[in-house]
Amino acid sequence: MMGAMPRKPVARGAVLDAFESLLIEVGERAATLDAVAARAGVSKGGLLYHFPNKEALIGVLLDRLDEYAEADAQAMAAAAEGAAAYFIKSSVWADTPLDRAIVAATRLAEVAHEETRRRFAHIQQRWLDEIARDVGPGLAKAVLYMGDGLYFNAMLSIGPAASPAETAADVESLLAALVRLRG
């Protein structure tokens, strides 16, 4: 077979991005390997070369989530305004890679995917530890719930989506509450 060129490996990242997008848009059940391959523009064989099954794809997606969340926790720990204020300010939907990974993984948690739930618990504990270093363990959960409330309200966008000005006002209101909680 003279002149046959080896097939170029499919970009794993494109497959992973396609899986993440499908999870966000249509949920876990509809994010089939066939749908992922079609979205990524690769053959099913090309997809299977990198990810032998859906569980392998999920595992790499969760590793990506862990990586983004750890970078966020490190930024939180280093934030000049403190971890608690950083957490509240960053708890608005901004379509960041971390935001997308969280929503995609939420789709897996919805179908009781145990490894996803375990990873979320670990990430939440990591954030809670950083916030507790800043405001103490007594206030840490209150701050976590403030940020989570902002985030999930924005993510679900129940009713008309809040304007950027309304969202900024909500953030400022929570930061003012944080100052009062700190005493």
Rank of each mutant, 00 (worst) to 15 (best):
S43M: 00
I58V: 15
D34L: 08
A30F: 00
T32H: 01
I58D: 09
E55A: 15
A30V: 00
Y49V: 13
G46W: 11
Y49E: 14
A30Y: 00
L47G: 08
V36P: 11
A40K: 02
L57N: 07
S43W: 00
A35V: 05
I58F: 15
A38L: 07
A35R: 07
G41K: 00
S43C: 00
A30L: 09
V42P: 06
A40V: 01
A37P: 11
D34M: 04
A56S: 15
A38K: 08
K44T: 09
V42F: 01
A37C: 07
G41V: 01
N53L: 10
V36A: 09
I58T: 15
V36T: 14
S43E: 00
F51E: 10
L33W: 03
G45R: 05
A40I: 01
E55G: 13
G46H: 10
V42C: 09
L48W: 08
E55C: 07
G59D: 14
E55R: 15
G59L: 08
E55T: 15
P52M: 13
S43V: 02
D34A: 12
V42D: 05
G46A: 13
A56R: 13
A56G: 10
G41M: 00
G45Q: 09
H50K: 08
N53C: 14
A38Y: 02
A30S: 08
P52F: 12
G46I: 11
A31Q: 04
A38Q: 12
A31V: 02
V42Q: 02
T32A: 04
G41D: 01
L33V: 08
A35K: 05
L57W: 07
D34G: 06
A30Q: 10
G45H: 05
V42S: 02
E55M: 13
H50N: 15
A37K: 03
L48G: 08
L47P: 10
P52E: 12
E55H: 14
H50P: 11
L33M: 13
A35Y: 03
A38P: 04
I58A: 14
K54Q: 13
E55I: 12
A40S: 03
S43H: 01
A56C: 12
T32E: 01
G59Y: 06
A31P: 02
K54N: 12
T32P: 01
A40N: 00
A38E: 09
G45W: 02
A56N: 11
K44F: 03
H50Y: 13
G46C: 11
